[in-house]
């Protein structure tokens, strides 16, 4: 289990569902990077950028999210956002 399963869901559609190396999530109480094996956490997001690192040391890909939640559980990271734009 080297990769983190990452899902980004908006009310309109499932934006992303893929395996990535790390995602940096803008939580209200501070940004955090989620990698595979992260402890379960549930947090409200502030409006900002999700940074998706597909590979270790690679260039991050940014997606703007607004009005969201992030949940890290056994099955990876799920971000629920009201809107997401690339």
């Amino acid at each position: 289990m080297a990769d983190l399963h990452f899902e980004l869901v908006t009310p309109e559609r499932l934006v992303r569902s893929e395996d990535v190396y790390m995602v940096v999530v803008p939580g209200v109480e501070g940004d955090f990077g989620a990698m595979a094996g992260h402890a379960p956490v549930m947090t409200v997001l502030k409006d900002g950028e999700l940074k998706i690192y597909k590979t270790a040391g690679g260039q991050p890909e940014s997606i703007n999210v607004a009005g969201g939640f992030a949940e890290v559980g056994d099955n990876g990271l799920t971000v629920l956002a009201e809107s997401a734009g690339e």
Binding site: V28, A39, P40, V41, M42, T43, V44, F69, G73, E82
Partner: peptide
Amino acid sequence: AAAAVEYEPDEEEILAALLPKNIT
């Protein structure tokens, strides 16, 4: 499994943000 989850901020606050969304 849910018991081990860490909540940021606490449950009540998350819920307060989440409930209106749930209605939407």
